[in-house]
């Protein structure tokens, strides 16, 4: 896995900044962009998978029992899962809280 961006020195860059390690975008923590994070209430969840389908970053995992988990390494906090959830099982809270 590639080094985090803020640790790479100029001498370590490939010629022309070519990226020769396919898939290294996975190392990029888009979760840093978040100002609000999703909070999941399992009691209200009916395991429909709608949030999983709508998440634009595939940052929602469906667990073996059908319930879900947010991957906060990638979740940008867009709130689409909150909007789409038919049972209001997800809410957004400010990151500072």
């Amino acid at each position: 896995m590639a080094k985090p961006e803020h640790e790479i020195t100029w001498k370590e860059l490939n010629v022309g900044c070519v990226i020769d390690e396919p898939g290294n975008a996975a190392a990029y923590r888009t979760g840093d962009w978040r100002s609000q994070r999703p909070v999941y209430n399992k009691d209200r969840c009916i395991r429909c998978g709608t949030c999983y389908i709508f998440c634009p970053d595939m940052a929602i995992k469906i667990l073996a029992d059908g319930y879900i988990e947010h991957d906060l390494y990638y979740c940008k906090g867009c709130g689409i899962c909150v909007e789409e959830c038919p049972t209001d099982a997800i809410t957004m809270v400010d990151e500072e809280e």
């Binding site: 961006e5 803020h6 022309g16 900044c17 070519v18 990226i19 020769d20």
Partner: peptide, 11 residues
């Protein structure tokens, strides 16, 4: 390979 990728202020 990727050429012409985005660089953030960190890089």
């Amino acid at each position: 390979v990727t050429m012409g990728a985005f660089a953030t202020p960190a890089l």
